[in-house]
Structure formats: C-alpha cells, structure tokens
C-alpha cells in the first residue's frame, strides 16, 4: 500500500557527500606521504626484476664492508649486499603488510557491519569480543601461533591480520551505527528497505573513506609488526630477507659496522611516516567535515 507518507519519505535523499573532494596535490601531507610510500613500493617492485646482487650472493672478500660503489649500502658479516637485502626486504614488508590488511578487513568489516546492523544482543556480543581481542596484543597472538605452527609468513600474516581486525571492526561498527541512526536511513527502513540494500546504498558509501584511511594506517602498523616479529625471530624465516632480521643481524655487528643499522630502520620509519601522512592527507581530502572541525579548532 503506497501512502503519501511513504512517497514523501522515499523522496528524502541521502545527502550527497558535500563539497567536491579537494584535489590531492592541495594537501601537502598527501603528496609527501604518497611520495615516501611510492619510493618503498618502487624498491619492492624493482626487486622483482632487478637487484644489484642475487638473494644468496655472498662476497667473502668483502665482509662488513662500508658503503661503496660496489655495495651501495655495504655488506653484512657474511658479505651479503645490504642494498639487495633492503630491496628484497621491502618486498616482504609490502607483501605481508598488504596481506595482513586484507585479512584484517576481511574479518573486521563484516563483523563491524554485523554488529551495527544487528540487534542489541549481537552488537554487545561482538563488542565484547572486539574488546578482548584488542586487549590481546598482536605480538602475543603471534607468539601463540608460532608456538604451535612455527615461524612462517602465513603465521605472521594471520597474527597481524587478526590483531588489526579488532580495531577495524571497532571503527566499522562505530561509523556504521552513526549512519544507521541518520534520519534518511531511518526513513528508508520505515519504507521496508532491506538491511543489505541499506548497507549498499547508504552505509558503505558513507563509511568507505573512513575505512580507507584506516587501511593506510593499518598497513603501517602491519609493517612495524612484521619488522618486530622478524627481529624477534618469529617472522618470515630465512632466507627470505626482512628489515627486522637485517636489524637483528646488524645489532650483533654494531660496534664494527654501525651503518648497517641505519638503512633498515630508516626504511621502516619512511614507510610508517609515509603511511601516517598519507592517511592524514586522505582524511583531509575525503572528509570535508573534518576540515571544518580543524578550522574551528584553530580558533
């Protein structure tokens, strides 16, 4: 039965995302962040086709050599070229980072949406689980899994992914429930629009930019976590190179070859700073409301 009220309600539109998105280059954070990440990404991609030396190439005549034309970043105590290791480490970092973020979102987003869309009981249950997983640090989770399965790339990805998924679920739930209580969604529900339709038409379009920002930040968290795990010897096992293990090896020779410590640490920092800047920039570009709040806060 179509009543005038329902017709009137149906004409209530979801507000367009106000303001055209700001052009990317107008946000310095975005530009710098993207540049830093592109540099890391380039290292990783180039390593697929070319690196100064092979993965297992060792140069016994040049152990712990300083940076030179032959070895741009020096060599370690086995005579392995550090720049090669750095490039291949970038590949590991990017791969584990992306895969963990994918796992985190594959778990977190549906869970958060479920909590927001379902009734109070389900919501409370999910919130409880999220709280506990948040209290259950990624590092400990990884340690549990490594105890059972041994260190491997898959374990690292699962542990980091599950650890980060809790935060993703939390954020998804909060942003989605905010949309669910908006007038135009209530109006749509009154007209009998199904939950999946509401999700597709109203919720996702309104939260995707929050999630995108979260994804960039999660990538940074995953890269640090990967480096920590391999530093502790719980990450990707050798011979696959990793920034964390490079640092662990460099630590034992720090008194003779301190330069070996510099680059891998810098690589992690560049990735994380890049990700944070990119996230900040994306937020500015995608979320006009935040921009206004910032201006208001500057009073």
């Amino acid at each position: 039965m179509s009543t005038p009220l329902v017709e009137a309600v149906e004409t209530i539109e979801a507000p367009d995302i106000p303001d055209r998105p700001r052009r990317g280059w107008r946000s310095p954070s975005f530009v710098v962040g993207a540049a830093l990440l592109l540099a890391i990404l380039a290292l990783a991609l180039v390593s697929l086709v070319w690196s100064p030396y092979g993965l297992d190439h060792t140069d016994p005549t040049a152990r712990l050599a300083g940076p030179s034309g032959q070895h741009w970043a020096g060599t370690d105590r086995l005579g392995r070229d550090q720049f090669t290791q750095l490039m291949l480490g970038a590949r590991t970092a990017v791969w584990i980072g992306l895969a963990s973020v994918a796992v985190a979102f594959a778990i977190g987003v549906p869970l958060g949406l479920l909590a927001a869309a379902a009734g109070r009981f389900v919501e409370n249950a999910v919130v409880g689980v999220i709280d506990i997983v948040i209290a259950f640090p990624t590092l400990l989770l990884a340690m549990l899994l490594v105890t059972v399965y041994g260190a491997s790339t898959g374990v690292a990805i699962s542990a980091i992914g599950i650890g980060v998924s809790a935060e993703v679920a939390r954020l998804t739930r909060i942003s989605a429930s905010r949309v669910f209580t908006e007038d135009y969604v209530l109006a749509a529900r009154t007209c009998g629009t199904g939950p999946l339709m509401i999700l597709a038409r109203h919720v996702l379009p309104n939260i995707w930019h929050t999630l995108l920002v979260q994804a960039t930040l999660a990538f940074g968290i995953a890269v640090i976590a990967e480096a920590s795990l391999s530093y502790l010897g719980l990450g990707t096992p050798p011979p696959a190179p990793s920034w964390g293990r490079m640092l662990q090896e460099a630590q034992s020779t720090v008194s003779v070859a301190p330069w070996n410590v510099l680059l891998p640490g810098l690589a992690v920092a560049v990735t994380v700073v890049g990700v944070n800047l990119l996230g900040d920039g994306l937020r500015e570009i995608l979320d006009p409301q935040l921009r206004q709040q910032r201006q208001a806060a500057d009073r």
Binding site: G220, L247, Q248, A250, Q251, V254, V261, G265, V268, A269
Partner: peptide, 15 residues
C-alpha cells in the same frame, strides 16, 4: 619516535 621501531631505537642507543 612513533614511526621508528623500538628495537631500532634500542640498537642506536646501545651503539
């Protein structure tokens, strides 16, 4: 300080 891994800070401090 947030972006640098804590063990890297540690190694540099030791050095």
């Amino acid at each position: 300080g947030i972006a640098l891994p804590i063990f890297w800070i540690g190694i540099v401090v030791v050095w």
